[in-house]
Simulated assay, not measured.
Amino acid sequence: MSDFSNALSVSSSGLKAQAQRLRHVAENIANADTPGYRRKTVSFEAARDSDAGGVIPGPVRLDRGALQRVYDPSHPLADETGHYDASNVNLMIEMADAREAQRSYEANLKMFDQARQMSSGLMDLLRR
């Protein structure tokens, strides 16, 4: 495989991984007010089947942090003390994760575009 193909492969794997990470962040934000919801996280692993490198998303994990206890006796899920378990999603952390995933996605996209432009420029030089 050529170096240009390797660069395209690595950057496209990063694009896919960051897109999945951003989907999980969006899901966490959407379910921030869902009682009993646990924050989802995804880690990245090195791609084993590629010579060029790259990453693949690892398994999705649930954050085992403590659920927030909320006092609301009128809530349908409230126990006899008037408390229920809310989600463990922290919107500040999710916004920071979303920003980091977006920036990483943009960096991979620039790398992909740069490799494509270099490949196109090389083909133009070879045609002359």
Rank of each mutant, 00 (worst) to 15 (best):
Y37H: 05
Q114T: 15
A32F: 02
G14C: 05
M92E: 13
E80I: 08
R116I: 01
R127I: 03
I29A: 11
E100M: 15
R128S: 04
A107W: 00
Y71G: 07
H24L: 12
V25F: 03
Y71Q: 10
S13N: 05
A101M: 05
S43E: 14
A26T: 09
R48V: 09
Q68Y: 05
S119A: 15
A17P: 02
D51E: 15
L67P: 06
Q117T: 14
L122K: 01
L91R: 09
K40A: 03
G14R: 05
L122F: 04
L126I: 10
V42G: 01
M92R: 14
L8G: 10
R39Q: 13
R21Q: 05
V89P: 00
E45M: 13
S43H: 15
P73A: 06
N90K: 14
N90Y: 09
S12R: 15
H24D: 06
Q20G: 12
Y71F: 13
V89C: 01
N28D: 04
G53M: 03
S43P: 04
D33E: 12
P59W: 03
D63R: 02
D3Y: 10
L91Q: 08
P35L: 07
V60T: 07
V89F: 00
G14M: 08
T34V: 11
D85I: 06
R103S: 11
A30K: 10
S13H: 11
M118E: 02
N90Q: 14
N108A: 02
V42R: 03
Q117F: 05
G36A: 04
V55M: 07
R64V: 03
N90S: 15
E100Y: 11
S120Q: 12
L62T: 08
P57I: 03
S11C: 09
R61T: 11
A52L: 10
E94S: 04
K110T: 12
Q68A: 12
L109D: 00
A26I: 08
V89K: 00
D72M: 03
A96P: 04
A7K: 05
A115D: 02
A96I: 15
V55P: 11
R21N: 03
A101H: 06
I56G: 06
V10I: 15
S5I: 14
P76C: 01
D97K: 01
L126N: 02
A66N: 09
K110M: 11
S120F: 13
A17F: 00
Q102C: 05
D85S: 10
F4I: 14
R64C: 00
Y37F: 15
K110C: 04
M92Q: 13
